[in-house]
């Protein structure tokens, strides 16, 4: 059974329909790359999955639970959103670390507040601190835990942002162009961390303009164009033998760069 099923997601801003019925599924441990030119609706799709935008139509199902169904009022309660969005994690293009906290505090803040709310903080804080430190080893920043974001490079900040998302144990981790704000020499270190996550069978949706990476890390690729999924397939198929004219043109433009 799929861990994520997205059916017919639509989203309109004003009178522009940005998502015109997006449907796909994702297997547990699968990695989905989403490519497409700027303005095709990739960010909006991730924001819908993370409940930062509410779709105008469609169904989102995670692990068999219908999290969102536009036609089922029971799934639309504001009070449930917080619990539902924890199925997803989101790593932003611009990192969005909290500047007043150290890297370690950035990673610990959300679970700490959550545990304090549930009165489990005292019992769990040691375990949480251990887990945070392990994550810093994993992202290769064990020696920078106590630095503030402005003392870290963009690549380091983005790796901290990944650890901050991971500590909430999302079922599906989403990345929105995680390297687009980085200097070219810093993208590698971030992609390496994401690559390692895929080896550990982390379920991920990765929006990216790094075509080589999109092909290598994913077991499924979606090409979006004008708010629809224009083509979908396994990476070697979609990149090696695209069927749609628009996909070909898009990939050709990238190859020329």
């Amino acid at each position: 059974m799929s861990i994520l099923e997205v059916r017919n997601i639509r989203k309109t801003f004003g009178n522009i329909e940005v998502l015109k019925g997006i449907t796909f599924t994702l297997e547990k441990g699968g990695v989905l790359s989403v490519i497409g030119s700027s303005g095709s609706g990739k960010t909006t799709l991730l924001r819908c999955l993370n409940f930062l935008e509410r779709p105008d139509d469609g169904v989102i199902t995670v692990k068999g639970e219908v999290l969102f169904d536009r036609n089922d009022p029971k799934t639309l309660h504001e009070s449930q959103i917080r619990r539902k969005r924890l199925h997803f994690g989101l790593v932003f293009q611009s990192f969005n670390l909290f500047p007043q906290y150290t890297a370690l505090q950035n990673v610990m803040l959300a679970p700490e507040l959550f545990m304090k709310e549930n009165h489990t903080w005292n019992a769990e804080k040691a375990r949480l601190a251990d887990e945070a430190e392990e994550l810093f080893v994993q992202i290769g920043l064990a020696d920078r835990m106590n630095n503030y974001p402005h003392q870290l490079s963009g690549g380091q900040q983005q790796r901290v942002a990944i650890a901050r998302a991971l500590i909430m144990h999302p079922d599906i981790l989403c990345f929105d162009e995680p390297t687009s704000a980085l200097d070219p020499e810093l993208t590698g270190e971030v992609l390496k961390v994401i690559g390692k996550l895929s080896e550990q069978n982390t379920t991920m949706i990765i929006v990216t303009h790094e075509m080589e990476f999109a092909r290598d890390v994913a077991n499924q690729v979606i090409f979006m164009d004008g708010g629809v999924i224009c083509e979908q397939g396994e990476p070697h198929e979609l990149f090696g033998n695209p069927k749609e004219e628009r996909t070909k043109q898009f990939l050709m433009r990238y190859n020329q760069k």
Binding site: N50, L52, R85, L90, N96, Q100, L109, A110, L113, A165
Partner: peptide
């Protein structure tokens, strides 16, 4: 304070109130 700060808090499952007091206020 950039909206990205609030959105980062939201996707981490923080409440609006937690975000105000623990993220936005000091900035």
């Amino acid at each position: 304070v950039p909206v990205g700060q609030q959105e980062a808090g939201l996707v981490l499952g923080m409440t609006k109130k937690q975000i105000f007091f623990h993220v936005t206020l000091l900035q």
